[in-house]
Design a protein around this nucleic acid. Structure first.
Length: 687
RNA sequence: GCGCCUGUAGCUCAGUGGAUAGAGCAGCGGAUUUCUAAUCCGCUGGUCGCAGGUUCGAUUCCUGCCAGGCGCGCCA
């Protein structure tokens, strides 16, 4: 909130003042609104902290007054030392005026740093396999990726969200074999099922059939199927008839067998259609989709080049290795003895293709923490290959989502996962039920289904995003489904309350629509669409040119298209227009908003909370984490609830105060809306 | 064995080299027949995993240990 120039330090200034003077919040509000601890200065100047504080006081005072005059700060009400601290208290009205003015200015949006960073950041996330639907683990990934993109864009980066589809490999072959055997040529449409679920069923079917066959074979060989160790089990799996069938299918795919490719494309197409729905629902959009089937060849080329340049070595059995002993990473295989690529080979190819496409300054990979080692290897290999941009590659890792009651890790192979679509449906249904009971939903336009989905997702997204990414999350359905307390719906509720107040004020002609200052939420990805690969599925034959990837082919449902509503005639239309207007409002026009009347402690507390937003956004961008924004929103929500209960708006003592509180409430709504958008959460007008 | 992550209230989690460590949930007790009770107020609840070290000051930084998780594949 406060940028210190250090001039206040007079001849004590040494150039490090901005680091040294870092204001914090006093432990008790009576002490002041901001506190400057003097310990670091004491160290730098070898004086007692208390002395420093006393000396700092007069110097700061001058500068703070100057800053207030220039509009960089609210006016000061009090400046005092308290032992080793200098505490400052803002004039409440001035603070309110100042913060609301920043929020209603709209452009650049509140919280954004003035100069864009000029940095181009690619964020790869989601990265599903095409053999099964998205589950809870993917949901965490998608939400982290989505919010990271929004936050970095809000903080001034040009963000390029991309997806990487694992569309080849033995797991895909398993679904294909299962479909050939037990699919009877049906389609998802005939089965009345989402394409990804349809295909996922065959993958699970393969797993259960394989287990049955393996168990039977094990018994024949005199083993106890339950007591098999993993290695032994795999050996026996290979002796069944199913496993070789899958391997054969994979080999036919790699040889470009027409029938196999056709089935592969057909099944992948079903899966993409399913993913498309889920992504659209969650709000995920991608600038470009990469497919491993289209990048592994480039990876192999890179390995061959490295081999030729002596960076890698070929062993007698034909396999290719990188010696990373110097980096403490041991030996890493890059090509199998039969010449086929391994996982990391594909990632090498993808990394280079990505850079060729976008020349980004940094490239972030949102991938689970179980792959920390993998990415350390990948980035090291890219450096060894001499790509200077490898220094800008960074793995944004996150912990796993586990299931409660000893259900263990999510394993879609055993069908033991929480399905993403089912979970969203369940949450939406519960939220919808509650909204119906509340009875306010009908006041807004919009159907209950969409509202329920927005609130259900609000619950899920806030639940998953408020905890640090590095932590494992034990998924607790009861808590996720909770809509009270520190939850997404509570934040959405505060916003809806404000909208309701404003609608009432408009309906009773206490303010006119023209009094409202409206701002639009910036949408950095408006031009992207989902970029779904549905329309043109890639082929195995397509090379690494990325040609198979359509850009912006599908149109994403605009999250806020209601804001596009225009003035219409008619009584029904007026209500709707009012809602649309309120949904964009951030304050009242200057002559109607007497913010200097806002001197109640709850009003001041609310203003101080609002002022934290830029810091929260900056911290989130620096940490590559949505958690600071989530925490900020929950705090702001609590501050607003306290204000709401202590400072009636429409029933304020007088008209001027009513307007002032309306003004402040609108600013809160605007910041809630914007903050929620950073987390991919919608802000309904009524609930 | 080695590497990385985590350990804070009964539970789920914030937090920061500095003032008396905070929320939510759960429990108990309250709130104007509500500008929307998906709310608010109060109470109860802590050897910040353990032990050393650095520091004027450590829950925060360093070292060691303990516990849990995840890795260290010619799997992805």
């Amino acid at each position: 909130m406060v940028a210190w120039s250090g001039r206040a330090l007079g001849d004590w200034a040494t150039g490090d003042e901005e680091e040294i003077l870092s204001p914090t919040r006093p432990p008790r509000p009576e002490l002041g609104d901001l506190a400057i601890p003097c310990f670091p200065l004491a160290k730098a100047f070898h004086r007692k902290p208390v002395e420093i504080a006393a000396a700092l006081l007069p110097a700061l005072e001058g500068e703070l007054r100057e800053a207030a005059t220039a509009g960089r700060l609210p006016a000061l009400a009090r400046l005092a030392t308290a032992g080793p601290y200098v505490n400052l208290t803002f004039d409440a009205g001035s603070l309110a005026e100042w913060i609301c003015a920043r929020i209603t200015a709209g452009a650049p949006p509140y919280g954004a740093p003035l100069p864009a960073t000029g940095r181009r950041t690619m964020v790869e996330y989601s990265a599903p396999n095409t053999n099964k639907p998205l589950h809870l683990g993917h949901v965490r990934n998608n939400l982290l990726g989505l919010s990271l993109c929004q936050i970095l864009a809000a903080a001034g980066d040009e963000v390029i969200p991309v997806n990487l589809i694992n569309d080849r490999g033995i797991h895909i072959a398993k679904s294909m074999v299962a479909y050939e055997r037990w699919g009877a040529g049906t389609t998802p449409e005939q089965a009345g099922e989402k394409g990804d679920h349809f295909v996922g069923r065959f993958y699970v079917r393969f797993g259960t059939e394989l287990k049955a066959a393996t168990d039977a074979l094990a018994r024949e060989q005199g083993h106890d199927p339950e007591g098999l160790d993993e290695e032994r089990r795999r050996e026996i799996e290979e002796q069944t008839e199913l496993m070789p069938a899958a391997r054969q299918c994979l080999r036919r795919w790699e040889e470009g067998d027409a029938a196999t490719l056709q089935l592969w494309e057909r099944m992948n197409g079903w899966v993409y259609a399913g993913f498309d729905q889920t992504y659209a629902r969650l709000g995920c959009t991608f600038r470009k989709w990469y497919f491993e089937s289209g990048t592994f060849r480039r990876g192999k080329e890179l390995v061959e080049e490295g081999l030729a340049r002596g960076i890698f070595v070929r062993r007698d059995d034909g396999s290719v290795w990188a010696d990373l002993e110097a980096e403490d990473l041991g030996q890493k295989i890059l090509l199998r003895s039969d010449g086929t690529s391994v996982y990391i080979t594909q990632d090498l190819g993808t990394a280079v293709l990505k850079y060729d496409d976008f020349q980004m300054n940094r490239s972030l990979y949102v991938v689970g923490s179980e792959q920390i080692h993998h990415f350390r290897l990948l980035f090291t290999l890219l450096r060894k290959l001499g790509f200077p941009w490898a220094a800008g590659c960074h793995h944004v890792s996150y912990g796993l989502v586990t299931l409660p009651r000893g259900m263990g890790k999510l394993k879609s192979r055993e069908g033991r996962a929480v399905d993403a679509d089912d979970m969203l449906d369940e949450l939406a249904g519960m939220a919808q039920e509650k909204a119906r009971e509340g009875g306010y939903a009908t006041e807004a336009e919009g159907d209950l289904g969409a509202l329920g989905d927005a609130i259900g997702q609000g619950a899920l997204k806030m639940y998953l995003l408020q905890v640090g990414a590095e932590k494992n999350i034990q998924f607790d359905p009861d808590r996720t489904l909770d809509f009270e307390g520190d939850t997404g719906p509570a934040v959405q509720y505060s916003h809806a309350r404000i909208c309701s107040i404003v609608r009432k004020a408009l309906a009773t002609d206490r303010i006119e629509p023209g009094d409202l200052v409206t701002i639009d939420l910036p949408d950095p990805f408006a031009h992207l669409g989902t970029g779904s690969p549905v329309s043109r599925p890639p082929t195995a034959a397509s090379d690494a040119s990325g040609e198979a990837v359509p850009e912006g082919s599908a149109s994403a449902p605009a999250a806020d298209d209601r804001a596009e509503a225009t003035d219409g005639g008619g009584a029904g239309g007026r209500m709707k227009d009012a809602a649309a207007l309120v949904h964009r409002a951030a304050g009242l026009r200057g002559d109607r908003a007497a913010a200097n009347l806002l001197d109640d402690p709850h009003e001041k507390g609310l203003c101080l909370e609002l002022a934290r937003f830029p810091a929260a956004l900056g911290q989130a961008a620096a940490q590559l984490s949505a958690a600071p924004v989530a925490g900020f929103l929950l705090d702001l929500t609590k501050a607003y609830a306290r204000f709401y209960h202590n400072c009636p708006v429409l029933r304020a003592q007088d008209d001027a105060r009513m307007r002032a509180r309306l003004h402040l409430s609108l600013a809160v709504a605007a910041v809630l809306r914007r903050g929620l958008a950073l987390l991919g959460i919608q802000a309904p007008d009524a609930m």
